[in-house]
Design a protein around this nucleic acid. Structure first.
Lengths: 342, 342
DNA sequence: AGTTAGCACTCACCACAACAGAGTGCTAAC
DNA sequence: GTTAGCACTCTGTTGTGGTGAGTGCTAACT
């Protein structure tokens, strides 16, 4: 595969970079100029013909310049791209943006999505950390009024979920005590995956009439546990779809696709390497056949917990985006790990 | 203004209803058929010419049918539209959808936005209840770990806000006691608008070194108070913009407009009547000149607290949408008022 | 007066042809 | 292997003529 001559690589790189910058097919003459007229346009034409032969370039029509094919982008990303280091100022900016984070992982990832969308002019997708092997670290009951209370559940993964519950009986100290006793006995330290609604049902039944009144609280706990292991997905910068003219004809389908949710979840969950670039038809969904997705996993502690990335056209400034996403994922990872340690 | 003959009104109504249904200009012959050939197409043409004269209709070009003008829609909404009663099954469906609501106003309004977007195929906008005259009903400190705690603030408006705070010192019973004392003395019962960051600063200064450590908690409270009075806006179903072909050329601008946030906020806050329909240029923003907005305020207790509505093209099924939005706003109001009473 | 039939007219839409321009592919020479 | 030269191809644009839907107007009718 790497049987390309240096010049062909150079030509391919120029075409891709020019095309990324201008969205116009690149002609032999323009390339010639970009190479400082080292060789003539005819020579370049010959090389370009070979590159088309290899499937790395495409010509929209006979008399247009060349455009990178998906394989061309792939080759570029794998072999040609000069890796780009995020400037210190940009790094600082990102950190400052994220600084307001105070300990709620969900909010951090939502914010990170916003930043990424802003920075890349693409649609940003981020998933809150999810961990179905998480344990319940702590459950708290926060009385709000005579008949309502908030239940706060903290998992070992650092994830925090809360819900407001209404209760027919008055929520007094006695009830709170019963609640904490039940939590201590049946919930704290258990795997969130164990706390299902059916588990709650059998539990309530076994506890008998006395604590029947607890039932809404316990159901809420089950819901929170399921929320802990559910991947929560944040979609930001959807308006950016319309920025990219090459996507405009797919815009509707794409929008719809992204709002369906589950496919995105499966994409997020299927990230193999730390950083994945899927170009066009490399994506598992046909709606993305003209799009590129770039996702980076982030880790909390030693665990891969979620991912953040973008969906954009295939014509992307890969070098910049990859380093941005990688950096962001790194920062998220360290921030979340820090909170975990405490 | 109501100097229109009955027949002209009928013609106008038919044109609008046909156009709403088909998005095609309506010709005299078609109207003739819809009127059961009661009069000839020539007569209708004469009437249509008058309606154009009055500015209620427009013709895209000489040889096309007629299309409602913005003024036409306005006349229709004000005088012609047969009000539509939401079916009981639809009412039930909405209630069941919203049922999962347990006491967090923010979540209820987010959900309501989702429902509305679903139901109308428009972009739904909803604002969480905001009330800058709300008082602090309750503040709770929920310890999460040695150095982090969650602060929960409940306002008299029923709004619930929470934040996680990190603290250098260990959060023990002693600190909690100091916290609650401060809350009791300086916060509970006060107007949220009073609790500004500068207020906190002077407070911290006056309390002296001993409680300097409380500072992050108190700042968090100030943030929560400002969140209570801030209008929080939920935007749902943005993918629906692309459903409406007549908006497609404005789609980009519209998307951008909606993502800017502040204009939406000002629209929400400037709702005069319980239910407002703004057609095209009646909207205060030029980006909406081809759009219609329909918003209904909802009330918690006796107070107008927020609004919910849609942004769509001018070609809308006004009757259905208006009744849907009105109903939804009513349900939201009662649900929120109920939680308030407790 | 209001209504109607009849008819010329207007304009968007479509298809087809002509044309210019950009960029190529190929050939023959270097 | 490289280059100059040139015919060729294809797109995008412009212009023309035909078609059809729907109108506006006039003159006759009730």
């Amino acid at each position: 595969m790497s049987a390309l001559t240096e010049r062909k690589k150079q030509i391919l790189a120029i075409i891709i970079e020019r095309y990324i910058a201008t969205a116009e097919p690149v002609g032999s003459k323009a390339i010639c100029a970009y190479m400082g007229n080292a060789v003539s346009s005819a020579t370049i034409r010959n090389d370009m013909a070979d590159l088309v032969e290899l499937g790395l370039l495409e010509q929209p029509h006979t008399s247009a310049g060349r455009v990178p094919s998906q394989a061309g982008y792939r080759y570029y990303v794998d072999n040609l791209m000069t890796s780009y280091e995020l400037g210190v100022d940009e790094q600082e900016r990102i950190k400052i943006w994220l600084q307001s984070f105070s300990g709620e992982p969900d909010k951090l990832l939502e914010k990170a999505g916003n930043i990424l969308a802003e920075l890349t002019s693409c649609v940003a997708v981020s998933s809150s950390p999810s961990d179905d092997e998480a344990f319940i670290r702590r459950i708290e009951l926060v009385p709000l009024s005579d008949h309502t209370a908030m239940i706060v559940l903290l998992a070992t993964s650092g994830i925090l979920k809360s819900a407001v519950v209404r209760c027919d009986a008055e929520i007094n100290v006695e009830i709170a005590e019963v609640f904490y006793n039940i939590c201590q006995t049946y919930f704290t330290g258990r795997n969130v995956a164990d706390i299902t609604l059916t588990f709650i049902q059998t539990l309530v039944a076994s506890l008998g009439d006395k604590v029947f009144i607890m039932s809404p609280f316990l159901c809420a706990i089950a819901d929170l546990c399921s929320a802990v292991k559910t991947t929560e997905i944040h979609l930001k910068g959807q308006n950016n779809i319309l920025n990219h003219t090459e996507l405009s004809e797919d815009a509707f389908r794409l929008m719809d696709f992204m709002h369906r949710g589950t496919p995105l979840e499966s994409i997020i969950n299927s990230q193999k390497k730390p950083l994945n670039v899927s170009i066009g038809t490399e994506n598992p969904y046909k709606e993305l056949r003209n799009s590129t997705t770039i996702f980076s996993k982030y880790s909390v502690g030693e665990r891969d917990s979620g991912a953040i990335g973008i969906i954009g056209p295939t014509r992307l400034d890969y070098a910049r985006l990859i380093s941005t996403i990688r950096y962001l994922a790194g920062v998220i990872g360290t921030m979340l790990t820090e909170t975990l340690d405490e």
